[in-house]
Design a protein around this nucleic acid. Structure first.
Lengths: 338, 338
DNA sequence: GACTGGCACTCCGACGGCGGGAGTGCCAGG
DNA sequence: CCTGGCACTCCCGCCGTCGGAGTGCCAGTC
């Protein structure tokens, strides 16, 4: 009883189950895949696979269904992800090339990914941390309120309203703006914080509280509120996954609304093009019947953010992984060329 | 047979059906509402109501269910929307008061609305058209690319990348920035367009193509791309509405993804506090089993945008309308005080 | 004339019994 | 180590039954 064939059997079970959504039996297996042996032989292999925990049967005398562990082995031993067709590649290219700014890139990407995979797509906005500050702008609004705008080289713009507590003179404002830009412009966002420390002291005592509040808002924008924006698309695809409301649909919709949870799901962005797959119970929360395929993306060696796809554990892993990887590469290229 | 009682019967049928989700019969009606007459009498009323098209029975010898026309009459003849409890009002207040900027207000509003109504909430970002321009900023990015930032008095910030085709001198950039602000700052967005016409001619011929592309991008931001942003929350609540995937859930999720469709659903913002209710087939698209309760909001007499709730036709209209109206009022106040 | 109690009727939906069929495990033989 | 055969299990769809909820109608009452 060869080890290799058992893997082939598992592979075949996963493929059939994914495409039919029904438990698969020994007979239909040999019919659909030319395994070169009889159903009885396959049954023996299946018995072993079941004992080892890779497959299970819903009821006695039913076909087999892959377990989380089975999907895991399937993904780990996958020969290769499915390459995209030429038409798909052209579609990606033309769809993404029309983007006018970063927001547009992200919006188009998430829609594209949802359409290609026919599942729920999630794209995190590029992290501020490793971007370079291009410009800091301060604009007086009414009374004691200022608007702080932070512009980075990825084209991302963050704004923030600051209440200074007392009116700030225009001249002071101009001075502050100039000093902030002197410190921040051209530096990486993560490094700017260190240069802001002694800035308050350069101002007259009566302005210092105002300056301090601007600085703290800036630090906030730079550090705390970073990374929490995500775009989601394709939720309508969830209706294709059977009808187990309580345990499948609701937890997914809830997770999609909680952006913090969503970011946990996507996981840390490592280097671009390194695909991560989380299967069933490997996911945080009660998403035990869902899987996530994610990948980092960004213009350079370091990934700035993550994008991915959320679907049922019974998903087409090779196809999904191929699509996610391809889209991430295109988007990375676009970011690099900007 | 009094006309008044028939209305009471319809009202009672709607209320019972909304709370139990099951067809309601004559006997349970008299048990739950003290109508002062016997089931047989109610049956006569129901026969009339059915003949007039306000109610229907799913099968012979089943209870009655309100039709779209029945809900419509119910809503039109509603004595009043349900006022919120003190606890709810306090919750709204404290939840919205923590908002730091416009984005935050919208995000908090949509979540709050979803939570209060236990349905899907949709909030449109305030329209640019009637806002006042506070500041226009131009920042050089790499090579021939500029970033155009538009700041309005509602605290909204729009950005846009412009490719000028050729590098632009810093001095020209500063000049252009100053001129743009001279024309635009302090004016209403809708009026700015007219003032930009002859600006190109003030520059040297070699800079004119660059200036023209900046201007066209600005006009684009001002006019075309306006009004299309919406926030959505509470999609997980859709799982509470029975299990008719094909005709209920999927159309709703699809509508929620298409922001243009969503805006049609919400309808035109008229004056604040004027509630609109669209029931069943009154909605555009194939949302024939959904209803939308929407209302305009904004700081002044004119509504800047719309917010609302999407749910099944069998929703708690008085409660939903009360919540939507209350939240819109609070948000309008917050916008006015900024 | 409006309301009521009574009555016959309809029809949904839950329950239970009954195969058919798909799938399994095991065993003996090649 | 593979295979065909065989007995066994159990899901699932089908069908007839039956109770109950609800209705419409009619005759009687205030």
């Amino acid at each position: 009883m060869s080890e290799d064939r058992r893997l082939d059997v598992l592979r075949a079970i996963v493929e059939d189950y994914v495409s039919t959504q029904e438990p698969v039996g020994s007979k239909s297996l040999v019919e659909r895949h030319n395994l070169g042996v009889s159903p009885a032989t396959i049954r023996n292999d299946m018995a072993v696979l079941e004992e080892e925990g890779y497959i299970a049967q819903p009821h006695t005398s039913a076909g087999r269904v892959p377990t989380d562990k089975g999907y895991r082995l399937f993904v780990d031993r996958m020969r290769s992800v499915k390459p995209l067709s030429g038409a798909e590649r052209r579609a990606i290219q033309s769809f993404l090339d029309g983007a006018v700014d970063l927001d547009d890139v992200v919006q188009r990407t998430v829609r594209l990914l949802a359409q290609l995979t026919r599942q729920v797509a999630v794209v995190q906005y590029p992290s501020l941390l490793r971007s370079t500050v291009r410009h800091v702008e301060l604009v007086a609004l009414t009374g004691t309120r200022l608007l702080l705008v932070l512009i980075t080289d990825t084209g991302r713009v963050d704004q923030r309203v600051v209440d200074t507590g007392r009116p700030v003179d225009d001249a002071v404002l101009a001075d502050l703006r100039a000093r902030l830009n002197a410190v921040a412009a051209g530096r990486q966002v993560g490094e700017v914080a260190t240069g802001l420390g002694d800035l308050t002291e350069r101002f007259a005592p009566e302005d210092r509280t105002a300056v301090a509040s601007v600085l703290s808002a800036l630090l906030d924008s730079l550090l705390e509120r970073t990374d929490v924006r995500v775009a989601v698309a394709g939720t309508a695809n969830l209706t294709r996954f059977g009808q187990d409301f309580e345990h499948t649909l609701r937890p997914m919709l809830e997770a999609l609304e909680e952006h913090v949870v969503l970011l946990h799901l996507l996981g840390e962005a490592t280097r671009p093009a390194a695909l991560t797959v989380r299967i069933g119970a490997e996911n945080p929360g009660n998403l035990s019947s869902a899987s996530v395929v994610s990948v980092g993306y960004g213009p350079g060696e370091q990934a700035l953010a993550t994008m991915g796809v959320l679907g049922p554990t019974r998903m087409d892993y090779p196809g999904t992984m191929g699509a996610v990887r391809a889209v991430a590469r295109y988007v990375s290229n676009i970011l690099a060329s900007h």
